[in-house]
Design a protein around this nucleic acid. Structure first.
Lengths: 190, 190
DNA sequence: AATAAGTTTCAGAAATTTCTGAAATCTCAA
DNA sequence: TTGAGATTTCAGAAATTTCTGAAACTTATT
């Protein structure tokens, strides 16, 4: 691997982190490399930069495509495939969230649903089912919220984010105003 | 492994899922088992239930303790350690979020910060640093939001969740009311 | 201090995952 | 149709992770 030191640290870090997520080292490194490259890279350039085998790069790129984390570009008059990452970090975040949900949350949700349909035999199973129902409920709440929020355009999302917990303050204020309005119209009626 | 079928499916699923996260099969299975058990279990009961070695159970329990995902209980007059999971699913969620942040996000943030302090030499490094700054910015926004929101009590959190994207509607309404208020006081002034 | 009941550690075995090189396949152009 | 340039596949090698059994350790009790 022969990369500028600053880029190399980044790439190596993503390689390490890879294993904490479900992805492997090479996949992480390739992603990092593409992310910081000004121009799309072709497979051989990646081989060169990271010092791993051609076939490994091929398989890893395939996996990244499965995650929708890389884009394929073609240079006119060149038969090779060139790869980049989407350049808007928010887009990347959404994709990541979507894919992780698909792989990590949805399967669990469907296993839970299936089990909850069954008839428990015995007290232990009954109790277990109750616990699973709690878990199922929580996950469902979270995914509903997520499905809802992911529709928002970047701007509103940013507003919400920067407000953070202050949103509850706004909610409180609104309640007060509504209450005030009610009182007012009540007194007007009398 | 000799468990009621309904519980067995759940435990096995968590074992499988385990590997999609960073945790291994046994750790996942033990967690699932404890989660659905009405009473705390001791190590030997887990060995019995899952059919894995005693030492494996010991190491896995240790790892779960590292994640703060299990609680140690003692029965009076019994020297053995008994384990459970917290029973409030919201507590579990918070713990999970906290620990994953610590392991997956914080290290990246600190690597990024470190790299961003360095002086880029050459155009490629300059560009890479810019990209890293974008990533750093996004992560920082997210963690600030998270640090903020995690303070909320369960009730408010639930309200926020169930509102979902509707929060923005409330925000819009509030803006209108404020605007209205401004217009009113402006006309009073004139 | 000896013992007993329990837990942890750790070196190596077993299993799994990742990576490679060689061969197969694909695809466009002549 | 052939061939050159490129990508993909896949069987096995290499590396890593997980799991086990045996030994070491801890701590309460006699």
């Amino acid at each position: 691997m022969t990369l500028p030191p600053l880029i190399q640290s980044f790439v190596l870090h993503f390689g390490e982190m890879g294993s904490r997520w479900g992805i492997n080292r090479t996949v992480g490194q390739i992603y990092a490399l593409l992310y910081v490259s000004p121009e799309p890279l072709c497979a051989d350039e990646i081989v060169e930069a990271l010092g791993v085998s051609r076939s490994n790069v091929s398989m890893s790129l395939r996996e990244l495509q499965g995650w929708n984390l890389v884009l394929l570009k073609h240079q006119p008059g060149d038969r090779r495939d060139f790869y980049t990452t989407p350049d808007d970090v928010w887009v990347i975040l959404r994709t990541l969230a979507e894919e992780r949900k698909k792989r990590e949350v949805d399967p669990t949700l469907s296993v839970l649903r299936e089990i909850l349909l069954q008839q428990p035999s015995g007290e232990n199973e009954r109790f277990a089912q109750e616990r699973m129902a709690e878990m199922h409920g929580l996950i469902e709440q979270l995914t509903t919220w997520y499905d809802d929020v992911k529709q928002l355009d970047a701007e509103r999302l940013a507003t919400l984010l920067s407000l953070g917990a202050k949103v509850t303050k706004v909610l409180d204020t609104k309640d007060k105003i509504v209450a005030l309005g009610r009182r007012r119209s009540a007194s007007e009626e009398s």
